[in-house]
Nucleic acid binder design. Structure first.
Lengths: 224, 224
DNA sequence: CACCTTAATATTGCATACAACCACAATTTC
DNA sequence: GAAATTGTGGTTGTATGCAATATTAAGGTG
């Protein structure tokens, strides 16, 4: 029943539900859907090639995750953060993400470390090639590894909630070349700390990384 | 279309959607739905007096909030935490929640403080009357005030995610009378600190409160 | 008797139809 | 001419039907 207009655009998942969620999320991360933009159920359904039902489920999920906002009978729109919101975001991350790094690094598997290295490299490549819109998703995956492996289920949940908004804030867009370079160096150093299985080192680097990021974003937004 | 079997059981919200969510959540908080229990869409739909659609939306929302777990093609069940999970939960709360108290207390309105006092009183009354099943919801509302008013949107979101599981863990059930009394005293002292608009005091009491709660829950689960 | 196969049943996944609602514009009324 | 009102197009909210999948039970086979 969905084989008419387009061959199901491209399949992120096998189920309509997962597919809708994955594609919407990817659109949010890449910036195709700008903050404040309306997300019309019918439009999205046609674009993704499923009915409105899985779209609604995906939107609800994204709303629960804080990536979109739903107004009753009006629809969903991409969240848009104020500069203050984003500063707050980094405050919370500075408080808790280093701790997650401390906990997770000794627990990382070989594959985790390998994946961290790969992601860091991919971000580096994206910067070189000027494909900055890819950075949000890659960075989310990178930090996600520390968050997921910290061994405290609830800390993971809380940090996941904190990390997700960065995906739609497109913070990298406002970095200067120098700040970008510094951020990439931090990633490389986090990989090194992970390779060395040195949790304290990772914790320290993570704190530096986040405070530097906060500065980059705050200064960019305060003097336009 | 729902006026046949029962006069809509009792209306928590005006919309089917909100109503389903509110009622399910209330059932979870009160313990009517035990951890591990299956949540059948059809059964719930009939019980609440709406169709399966709003039930599904509510279940998805609850799943995103971590109160139920959905297995594809199998259905949803109430989350059940291990003793270790619950200990982890209190570790995270001990880290985050005192800070939220510090931030929120100076920002509380008169009504907020009044409401805190009322909730503390209601919990006291519930303890006296032995209606322990009501405590989870009341306690969630009490702590929720500090969380919501902390002024940092993202800290609120993260703490909301942390606070919710306590609602289904029914931790008060395992408190000794002495521990219950102590917990109630902490609540009263939090109200006092809020009245005095002393954030640091509230922060300190909150830390005490959570660490004591952790001890109560951990010792109860470790020697059965 | 144990084990595999197969049929029946229950439950979820998804699509679709219709109703309720909102926003905005054209029209009427003062 | 301004304000209130009604109409209309579009969007979301909810119910329902059918298809797909999992679970259970029964039956057959080694």
């Amino acid at each position: 029943m969905n084989t008419d207009s387009t061959p199901p655009d491209n399949d992120f998942g096998q189920n309509a539900d997962e597919s809708a969620y994955a594609q919407l999320r990817s659109m949010l991360a890449s910036g195709i859907l700008q903050p404040g933009a309306w997300l019309r159920e019918k439009t999205l359904a046609e674009r993704i090639g499923v009915s409105r039902t899985p779209i609604r489920e995906a939107l609800n999920r994204l709303a629960a995750e804080g990536l979109v906002e739903i107004s009753r009978n009006k629809g969903a729109q991409v969240v848009s953060f104020t500069a203050g919101d984003i500063a707050d975001l980094y405050d919370v991350r500075a408080g808790f993400e280093p701790h997650a790094a401390l906990l997770s690094v000794p627990r990382l598997t070989e594959e985790d470390v390998e994946r961290l290295g790969l992601l860091a490299q991919q971000m580096e490549d994206a910067v070189q090639a000027g494909r900055h819109s890819e950075l949000s998703a890659l960075n989310g995956a990178f930090h996600g590894i520390f968050v997921e492996q910290c061994g405290n289920r609830h800390l993971s949940i809380a940090l996941r909630a904190i990390l997700r908004p960065t995906m739609v804030a497109h913070t990298f867009m406002s970095y200067t070349p120098e700040e970008l370079k510094r951020s990439m160096q931090h990633h490389a150093e986090l990989v090194a700390a992970a390779k060395a299985r040195d949790g304290e080192w990772a914790e320290a680097v993570m704190r530096v990384h986040i405070l530097a990021a906060k500065n980059a974003v705050v200064t960019a937004n305060s003097n336009p």
